[in-house]
């Protein structure tokens, strides 16, 4: 089996009680990190864009900005992969509600913000990035499938890549079928090894065995139950604990083995 390698240079995180990767480490160490980020600041966006942007864009841009800052890279050089199981569910709820009642009154701005690649669009506009950008999904496996897409770009094109995995909370009748009770976002800046000041080196291998349920302290299981993008924790938690192995899923019946090496 071929293994894809990537240097992890930056990590971003946004969860109900964590507004950065260092707060994840605090939860894992047993001390509560009671920050309550209501609205992701998404400081990379210019003020006018930040006002116009839907919640899914703010969340994705916030975690992307954190990972970028940690990496010290220039955003314009990063190809990007934005993965999200559901896109902007607030907008989907709005679109479907309006279409059922007064379709001719649909907001043009909400419509163009409804595309799955809206976060990629806002991010590349804000950072002047002309590299390849993509928006992908794979149900509950959106993180693993997105990571595989990012890692294959790194290996095939030998260029750094930004990976963002995020989903907002659902609203309206859609909530019953999507079950997103909270917002969660994570981002990684990945580069061809050795990378510059890498936090860890990742070796990615496809395996037929799917991953098994993790055992984490609260509130992490609640995040995982309440948002498919929290599957990113399957990499982020082992990283925070400096463990040598992580497992996730790349597809419904395809596992993803992630071997981790840390600089001395």
């Amino acid at each position: 089996m071929s293994t894809l390698y990537a240097a992890i240079e930056g990590i971003g995180l946004w969860a109900p009680q964590a507004t950065g990767f260092d707060e994840l480490a605090r939860w894992l160490a047993g001390s509560a990190a009671p920050s309550s980020g209501v609205r992701p600041p998404a400081a990379v966006l210019p003020a006018n864009e930040r006002r116009r942007a839907p919640e899914s864009v703010l969340l994705a841009v916030e975690v992307a900005g954190q990972a970028l800052a940690m990496s010290g890279r220039d955003a314009a050089e990063l190809a990007c992969v934005f993965t999200s199981s559901h896109g902007d569910q607030g907008i989907t709820d709005y679109l479907c509600t309006t279409l059922a009642k007064t379709p001719a009154e649909l907001s043009p701005t909400k419509f163009h913000n409804s595309v799955h690649n809206a976060p990629a669009g806002y991010w590349t506009i804000a950072t002047g990035c002309h590299a390849a950008s993509s928006a992908v999904c794979a149900h509950r496996q959106s993180f693993g499938a997105g990571l595989l897409e990012a890692a294959s770009l790194i290996a095939a094109e030998r260029r750094p890549v930004l990976l963002v995995c995020s989903d907002v909370a659902s609203s309206g009748p859609l909530s019953e079928v999507t079950g997103c009770t909270l917002a969660f976002g994570a981002a990684l800046v990945l580069a061809p090894p050795p990378g510059s000041q890498a936090l860890a080196t990742l070796g990615l291998t496809l395996t037929p065995e799917p991953s098994s349920p993790p055992s984490w302290p609260e509130p992490l299981p609640a995040w995982l139950a309440g948002n498919p993008s929290a599957e990113a924790l399957r990499l982020l938690v082992p990283l925070a604990r400096r463990e040598p192995l992580a497992r996730a899923d790349a597809a419904a019946s395809l596992g993803l083995r992630m071997d981790l090496e840390y600089p001395a």
Binding site: S85, H86, G87, V115, H116, N117, A120, S133, S134, A135, V136, C137, A138, H139, Q141, S142, A145, L148, E149, L174, V177, T178, L206, P208, A250, A251, A252, S253, L254
Partner: peptide
């Protein structure tokens, strides 16, 4: 009710178990 509906359906219909991705740009 998720954008991966199409690909998950086709994976089932064709019995494919490899990498499986929706691109929505």
């Amino acid at each position: 009710h998720a954008p991966h509906s199409l690909v998950a359906f086709v994976a089932d219909a064709l019995d494919l178990r490899g990498p499986c991705l929706t691109v929505s740009t």
